[in-house]
Design a protein around this nucleic acid. Sequence first.
DNA 1: TTGTAGGCGTTATCAA
DNA 2: TTGATAACGCCTACAA
Lengths: 340, 340
Amino acid sequence: MATGAARPRRATIHDVAAEAGLSRGTVSRVINAERYVSDEARVAVEAAIARVGYVRNTAARNLKTQQSHAIGLIVHEPHSLFLEDPVIGAILLGTNAILSEADYQLVSLVIDSDRDSDRVAEYLSGGFVDGVIIISARSGDPIAHAVVKLGIPAAFVGHPPDIEGIPFIGIDNFAGAKAITERLLATGRRRVGMIASALDRDSGQDRLAGFRAALGDAFDPNLVVDYPLYSHGTGLSGMRQLLSRAPDIDGVFAASDSIAAGALDGLREAGRRVPDDVGIVGFDDSAWALRCQPTLSTVRQPADALGRLAAERVLSQLRGEQVPKFGTLLPTSIVWRDSA
Amino acid sequence: MATGAARPRRATIHDVAAEAGLSRGTVSRVINAERYVSDEARVAVEAAIARVGYVRNTAARNLKTQQSHAIGLIVHEPHSLFLEDPVIGAILLGTNAILSEADYQLVSLVIDSDRDSDRVAEYLSGGFVDGVIIISARSGDPIAHAVVKLGIPAAFVGHPPDIEGIPFIGIDNFAGAKAITERLLATGRRRVGMIASALDRDSGQDRLAGFRAALGDAFDPNLVVDYPLYSHGTGLSGMRQLLSRAPDIDGVFAASDSIAAGALDGLREAGRRVPDDVGIVGFDDSAWALRCQPTLSTVRQPADALGRLAAERVLSQLRGEQVPKFGTLLPTSIVWRDSA
DNA sequence: TTGTAGGCGTTATCAA
DNA sequence: TTGATAACGCCTACAA
């Protein structure tokens, strides 16, 4: 046993076979729900399993089948994302739900440094996992490339910038941005601006495009500012800039909740009331949304579904099925709170 | 291999032995850093390993040694904690660091429902993990009791309310609360109150005791309010109550950052400036701390160390060493920002 | 110090 | 439909 404290020996197929008065082969067939087992035998085996308290030995099975029955979930940037973003947690939960149904173990691999990155790459090539789900891969990601090279069944959550041939699951940033902007306009706002961000990424571009589509002819490029980072600081600076350009602004779409939180502070320092003077909406429905004062109206990502679908994509590949080598975009929903 | 896409067969000890011109036994001894291996043999084996790209087959090793070389990290309440509390993430990182050094795989087991709880209990009894780290166990926790019953090497992070015989690693809530209150007093505050919480738990009691100790004779029970939950709502209500009891209050120790955030909003609605009129400090150094306006002065938990130590406790037990059956309290530190 | 060989618990192939 | 029997890759006495 694993430790000095003597735990009782676990029952094996051998014990079950003896108990049921059948062969190990038959027991194995029952356990794996194979065909060619008589009902009689099945019942006897199931009873025996219950009596001796049999639990399958994973190591032996893995050794024999040459599979690990484990799927790796690779998460980057723990400090900024894993630790704070509820979206990641929800993805993890969704993934876990699907995988455990299918009798697969989820192994979370956190990448926190270059050393981790190397170690994980080695881990993957060691056959410790049968498949991989990668969250928030970035351009030039070494792990993503290692996965492609090794040919491990994989799926991305979020659109990887420069990888081909691996399915990904993302959200419809365009539709989400368009929908919430329309909702904001429906509250009667006349001068609506946007604090855009990360225009070098799909998510940033698509959110801006959605905003523009919602405004149609009323779109005014002068009311759009953009910054590289989805951050509180971006929101603060962006709001100041917007206010100086258009003091009569009465609505703002922030490209993320963190930006919206910053914008809220910008509005506060300018003495504007939210939502009375200015309505503001965000994107992500992240931890910020509920902590802001007032709470944020925003776009919710179906994070749980993102995780579930990614897991299903990997499992499909494991079954040898064809999976779309392109992406799947999931719809978002609007959460309307107090900020607009 | 795991999938249809044919990946090359992995090299085994057999291949390495052939390549090095030695026996499998010797190769195994080199791999496991055992004694009685000549330098000559070691060098030859290491070269052969590199040449054939050998990676140890975990399943075979686990089968032979009857160990899983995996440690479970059990986290409860994902929605309220795992997903939002950076402390949990840091604990995870610390645990992972120690475990991977010792060649153990960390398996995160998230408990999200009663069904999960049963499944995890079964998982544990299945020998899938050699040891367990349990975060934030609560009174009557079924998993905690299952662990005790199974006799699996384990460690708690945080003080479990009603479990004996398992080491735990916690923080010194008393000292942390005392220190930050003293710091608050040192800024010249004269009327300092506290919004206490969770007085049915050690953490809540100890934080209140620390506050009281710091004030000494100046302690005024009238300036302490308490609520059951560590939450934003608690902070808002608590601050209102404190303001009505003592309009001249100029300092507040909130029992958690979330409470401090609520108190900040309470102060804002009353037109008090922070830190000019009232200084406020929190506890945890959680995600709230940096998102508040102004940012929070608070008590930081050594979350990383918490995780590392818990991992070490479990590894010690695995080695058959005696570990303290009682708790270890780690010191906290103060992070001074803008709210006081 | 090195080599040999048995067996860990499964699954899968082949006969029966 | 069932039973016997090889592996899977590794560790570890024990023998040399």
